[in-house]
C-alpha cells in the first residue's frame, strides 16, 4: 500500500513566518487564519452532526411512545423513554437469531476472503509466470462485474448444492473478493522485497514456510484492513441474502428487518427499535476498527 507519510497540511505551521501583517479588518493575518479555521471547524462540526442525525433520531425513536413519535418538533432525548418497543420486537421476531446469522455469515466470509486473497495475492505478486499473469488479468476483468449481474445463476448453484436457507448458501456468494486479491498483491509488491524471499530460500526455507512466517506477518496491516472490509461487506449485504434466505430462521438481520417492516410499516417505534438494535453494535464495531477500515477503504482508491 502506498503508505502516505503524514505530511503537515499547508497551513498549520506556516502562518507564523508571514506574521505579523494586518488584514483589511485590522486583524492580524494570524488572527484571521485562526478565525477562518474556527469557522471551518464549526461548519464541519455541524455537517458531521447533520450526517449522523438521521441515525441519532432512529435510536431515539426506538425509545419513544407512539404519542411522542408524531410530536413536532421531534425530540432527541425522549421525554418519556420506554423499552416497550424493544420488548415487543424481541417477542415478535427472532431478532437475536438474525443477528447471529449475519454475524456468523460475516465472520466466515471474512475468513474465506482473507485466506484466499492472502495466498492468491502473494502468488500473483511474487511468482512471475506467464500463466499467472493471464490469471491475474482475468481476476482484474471480473472485478468490475457487479454481484447483481451473476447472482441468479449463482442462486441455482446454491440450489443444486441444497444449501439454500443456510449460512453456507449465503457464504457461496462471498467466498472470494477480486479486490481483496488485488489489494494483497499490491501490498506484497510494495512491502516485501524480493531479496528477503531469496535470502530465506538460500537458507533452505520451504515456500510454504516463507509464506506463513515471513510474508503473512509483514501483511498484517493489509490483511487486517481487508478483514474489516470483508466483514462489513457481508454484514451489510442485502440482494443476495434476500433471495437465498426464504425461511424466517435463515434470514440475516438485513433481510429480517426489511421483511419485518413490510408487515408493520405504521409502527415506527418498533421498527426503530429493531433497527437500533442492529445499528448500535455495528457502529460501535466500526468506531473501534476505524483505523483498519479507513486504511482498507482508502486503499480501494489506489487501484491505478
Amino acid at each position: 500500500m502506498t503508505q502516505s507519510t503524514d505530511i503537515d497540511p499547508q497551513d498549520a505551521s506556516t502562518p507564523d513566518r508571514y506574521a505579523p501583517r494586518t488584514g483589511p479588518l485590522g486583524l492580524s493575518r494570524r488572527t484571521r487564519a485562526r478565525l477562518t479555521d474556527l469557522a471551518i471547524d464549526a461548519f464541519l462540526f455541524a455537517f458531521g452532526l447533520l450526517m449522523i442525525l438521521p441515525l441519532v433520531f432512529l435510536v431515539s425513536n426506538a425509545f419513544k411512545t407512539p404519542q411522542e413519535m408524531v410530536a413536532w418538533p421531534p425530540r432527541i432525548i425522549p421525554e418519556d423513554p420506554t423499552l416497550e418497543n424493544f420488548r415487543s420486537v424481541l417477542g415478535d421476531t427472532p431478532l437475536l437469531l438474525w443477528i447471529w446469522n449475519s454475524f456468523s455469515f460475516a465472520v466466515l466470509s471474512m475468513i474465506a476472503i482473507v485466506a484466499t486473497s492472502a495466498i492468491a495475492g502473494y502468488v500473483l505478486a511474487k511468482f512471475p509466470f506467464r500463466s499467472l499473469h493471464l490469471l491475474f488479468l482475468v481476476i482484474l476483468a471480473t472485478a468490475i462485474v457487479p454481484f447483481e449481474v451473476y447472482m441468479i445463476p449463482l442462486y441455482f448453484q446454491a440450489q443444486a448444492l441444497g444449501i439454500l436457507n443456510s449460512i453456507w448458501g449465503l457464504l457461496l456468494g462471498y467466498l472470494v473478493m477480486s479486490f481483496g486479491i488485488f489489494l494483497i498483491r499490491q501490498n506484497v509488491m510494495h512491502a516485501i522485497p524480493d531479496e528477503l524471499l531469496e535470502a530465506a530460500r538460500i537458507d533452505g526455507a520451504g515456500e510454504m514456510w516463507i509464506f506463513v512466517f515471513i510474508v503473512l506477518p509483514l501483511l498484517r496491516g493489509a490483511l487486517g484492513a481487508l478483514a474489516v472490509l470483508a466483514f462489513f461487506q457481508a454484514w451489510t449485504s442485502f440482494a443476495w441474502p434476500i433471495i437465498v434466505a426464504t425461511t424466517r430462521d435463515a434470514y440475516t438481520i438485513e433481510v429480517g428487518l426489511a421483511l419485518f417492516q413490510t408487515g408493520f410499516t405504521v409502527d415506527l417505534g418498533r421498527l426503530s427499535a429493531a433497527s437500533a438494535a442492529v445499528l448500535v453494535p455495528s457502529v460501535t464495531l466500526f468506531v473501534i476498527l476505524r483505523r483498519n477500515f479507513v486504511q482498507g477503504v482508502a486503499s480501494t482508491g489506489m487501484k491505478e
Partner: peptide, 9 residues
C-alpha cells in the same frame, strides 16, 4: 458512518 451502517436500518 452512513457508508458503513447497514442499508436497511
Amino acid at each position: 458512518i452512513p457508508h458503513i451502517v447497514s442499508l436497511v436500518p
